[in-house]
Simulated assay, not measured.
Amino acid sequence: MSETMTLVTPPRRRERFGIEPNPRSRPAGRGRNTVGRTLLYVVLIIAAVAMLTPFFWMIMSSLKDANSVFSVPVRWLPEVFVWDNYVDIWTRSDILTWIRNTLVLSVTVTALQVLTGSFAAYGFSRIRFPGRDALFLLYVATIAVPWQSYMIPQFILLSNANVANTLWSIILLQAFGAFGVFLMKQFYETVPEDLSEAARLDGLSEYGIWWRIMLPLSVPAIASLSLLTFVNTWNDYLGPLIYLRDPSLWTMQLGLNNFVASLYDVDYGVLFAGLVISVVPIAVVFLLGQRFFVEGIATSGMKG
């Protein structure tokens, strides 16, 4: 009986000599992965279009006249671009004051939350004291408590302190946040303890370690916290509605709402122009800090 000898060339040797592999020998899972990835991209594109459609409609509505905004059927593009809407919102309202007040509150609250949140997070992550974990869990649990449950006693407290109807009321309300402490603590726990020990041996105090080592290393987490705090403060409506009664203290959201209420016949084209202006700072901040935001959120959930 004759035996047939088959020469089998290893894959690396076939690649070295330019021998093309048999298409039938390719794994079947590669084609399935391509199809799955294509479907995923399609779903993500559809979701992105669904999320961006309201913004597109808002921008286009800001360039329409008052009678064309809510026309039936919906006209996505204006027949005539009314650029004067952006001029009218500046001349018919006190939007410059609203922007200034909102910007002051957003920047101040963001800076204070980053300062207090990072400092408290360093204490919870690096300083050992009795009841530390229980105190941290109790503090973080306040995130689940709705603001409406203690809104009235808080208003009475600030009114007795004579800070109601001032910008200080909003600043004091939002200068401290449990979420910021939680976010920064999770990031600090990813920093090796050896760095803190080496700094202590070099004579640095705990304040120096926090300021000179931990803060520079936590730029992604600080960017994430800053972005979230800035957006929440800029979009806040209920807080300014309760505490800011003087029109000279109104924020952007409160001012636009009162602008609508003060008009008998609302020009929605002008209103949407104001809404577009209110969205621009948030979009700019998010675009500038998007890379740090994603990195900070991703690394804050890691340990070791």
Score class of each variant (00 low, 15 high):
residue 206 E to W: 05
residue 200 R to H: 10
residue 160 N to R: 15
residue 202 D to M: 14
residue 134 A to G: 11
residue 204 L to F: 09
residue 166 T to W: 07
residue 203 G to N: 09
residue 191 V to H: 02
residue 141 A to F: 11
residue 182 F to L: 00
residue 125 S to I: 00
residue 181 V to E: 06
residue 179 F to L: 08
residue 144 A to M: 04
residue 117 G to Y: 00
residue 148 Q to E: 11
residue 211 W to F: 00
residue 161 A to L: 15
residue 185 K to Y: 00
residue 200 R to C: 09
residue 207 Y to W: 14
residue 143 I to V: 12
residue 208 G to L: 10
residue 185 K to H: 05
residue 158 L to N: 11
residue 137 L to C: 13
residue 127 I to F: 13
residue 144 A to S: 00
residue 152 I to G: 07
residue 163 V to N: 04
residue 203 G to E: 10
residue 208 G to K: 02
residue 162 N to K: 15
residue 181 V to A: 13
residue 193 E to C: 14
residue 215 L to D: 05
residue 149 S to N: 03
residue 122 Y to W: 00
residue 212 R to T: 03
residue 177 G to Y: 07
residue 151 M to Q: 09
residue 207 Y to E: 12
residue 127 I to C: 12
residue 159 S to T: 14
residue 173 L to C: 02
residue 135 L to M: 08
residue 121 A to K: 05
residue 215 L to C: 08
residue 170 I to L: 15
residue 176 F to V: 13
residue 136 F to A: 00
residue 131 G to A: 05
residue 156 I to A: 15
residue 142 T to N: 09
residue 181 V to H: 09
residue 173 L to I: 03
residue 200 R to W: 14
residue 124 F to N: 07
residue 179 F to D: 02
residue 135 L to S: 05
residue 124 F to K: 01
residue 156 I to E: 15
residue 176 F to T: 14
residue 163 V to P: 11
residue 173 L to H: 02
residue 143 I to L: 14
residue 187 F to I: 03
residue 129 F to N: 06
residue 143 I to W: 01
residue 126 R to C: 02
residue 125 S to H: 06
residue 125 S to C: 03
residue 189 E to P: 04
residue 193 E to A: 15
residue 172 L to E: 05
residue 177 G to E: 08
residue 191 V to P: 02
residue 150 Y to S: 10
residue 176 F to C: 14
residue 163 V to H: 09
residue 173 L to M: 12
residue 153 P to T: 03
residue 207 Y to T: 10
residue 180 G to V: 02
residue 190 T to I: 05
residue 183 L to I: 06
residue 163 V to E: 12
residue 184 M to N: 07
residue 152 I to Y: 05
residue 175 A to P: 08
residue 151 M to E: 08
residue 184 M to P: 06
residue 200 R to T: 10
